[in-house]
């Protein structure tokens, strides 16, 4: 039993940290804000959630300590990181950070243009 638990704990933690690492690599290597944000908010969050899960298991299994805050934390992270990712991206876009020159689509730009035209027509 404990071996299996140990395994799961180790697994979650290790995988989580690897995710984190990969996310970081992404943040460093990726070419523009939007892609980096993608790496950070997706991969890192997943990694951290996994680590938290591992930690939760660790305390629950080895010490019998049911820590509700950890669960709360996982849920919280799960909810917030997309929002913050979204906000940053939108802010970056609106404050005029350029897309990567190899980006292929920019729907928002066209949409904005449309809105702008519309309002000018009005």
């Amino acid at each position: 039993m404990s071996v299996i638990i140990d395994f799961f704990i180790g697994f979650f933690i290790l995988v989580g940290s690897l995710f984190c690492l990969i996310a970081t690599i992404g943040v460093i290597r990726l070419p523009d804000v939007y892609t980096r944000n993608h790496a950070a908010s997706k991969a890192a969050t997943l990694g951290v959630m996994s680590i938290l899960l591992g930690t939760f298991l660790y305390f629950y299994a080895l010490e019998g300590h049911f820590n509700s805050r950890l669960i709360l934390g996982i849920v919280f992270l799960f909810m917030t990181s997309p929002i913050s990712g979204h906000l940053i991206n939108r802010a970056a876009y609106n404050s005029g950070v350029k897309l990567w020159d190899k980006s292929v689509r920019d729907d928002l730009k066209e949409y904005n243009k449309k809105v702008l035209e519309k309002s000018s027509v009005d």
């Binding site: 943040v27 950070a40 890192a44 990694g47 913050s84 940053i88």
Partner: peptide, 13 residues
């Protein structure tokens, strides 16, 4: 800001 946010998340870990 993105990096700082990620740092925060990392700190959690």
């Amino acid at each position: 800001v993105i990096a700082l946010d990620a740092i925060g998340v990392n700190l959690v870990a």
